[in-house]
Design a protein around this nucleic acid. Structure first.
Length: 211
DNA sequence: TGCCAGGCCGGGT
DNA sequence: ACCCGGCATGGC
């Protein structure tokens, strides 16, 4: 099983090349993006981030200061804006509102950080792990809908496997390496977008044939 | 036009 | 414990 996981990585890397993820120029941008992209196309998230940036709202202090309705208005393109503006507020409240609080927050050990993130209402396992891997740059494997669908269609997991189970599969199969986890997740999303969309019954012509 | 996107929560059985 | 609806914009 571990060999198959590694084989998938090598096949994807050979097929697609390096992905250069996560899009986002600062830790804060990555953190905010992780919330905004919940069940949402990244293209829409980019518009929302651009709005925040253009309004000078992309700092912890500004995000903490701004009324939730103002946040909602700016992140509108990312969808679920009433939910997500509240979730951002919850997250900011947990992190702190001065600009170096994020560094301190992300600097803790992985288990504590994950626990603290999951305690925030609106932050589930995928959002928490995305922040840990891409913003804090600590080694945790991010599982998303694509990961689940891809492994399920290739019959490497049961369709009813849960988040933790799939995460364990990757983490016990791979060396503990931030760059590897980063790249692998990015490759799975790339594969998913091109070959493993929800509407199609099978991943036709995908580069994983025969795994 | 309808379906889908890098989830998560809360309420009903 | 499980299941399911709600949340919402923009792209193809």
């Amino acid at each position: 099983m571990a060999e198959q996981i590694l084989e998938i990585y090598h096949l994807l890397h050979r097929h697609f090349g390096p992905q250069k993820w996560w899009p986002g120029e600062t830790r804060l941008e990555i953190t905010v993006g992780a919330v905004l992209t919940q069940n949402t196309n990244w293209r829409n998230v980019e518009k929302a981030i651009a709005n925040l940036k253009g309004a000078g709202l992309l700092s912890l202090a500004a995000l903490a200061e701004a009324p939730v309705e103002i946040l909602a208005d700016h992140i509108r393109p990312s969808g679920y804006y009433n939910l997500k503006s509240g979730r951002l507020k919850n997250l900011i409240a947990a992190i702190g509102s001065s600009d170096d609080d994020l560094e301190n927050f992300l600097a803790g050990d992985l288990e504590t950080l994950r626990h603290d993130l999951l305690a925030v209402k609106g932050i589930g396992p995928e959002t928490a792990d995305s922040i840990i891997l891409y913003a804090a740059e600590k080694p945790i494997f991010v599982v998303d809908a694509y990961t689940h669908r891809i492994l399920s269609r290739h019959e490497l997991i049961w369709a009813e496997s849960d988040y933790h189970e799939i995460q364990e599969l990757f983490m016990t199969s791979l060396p503990e390496d931030v760059a590897l986890y980063n790249e692998f997740h990015a490759l799975l999303v790339r594969l998913g977008k091109e070959f493993c969309l929800k509407g199609r019954p099978k991943c036709e012509n995908c580069p994983l044939q025969g795994v």
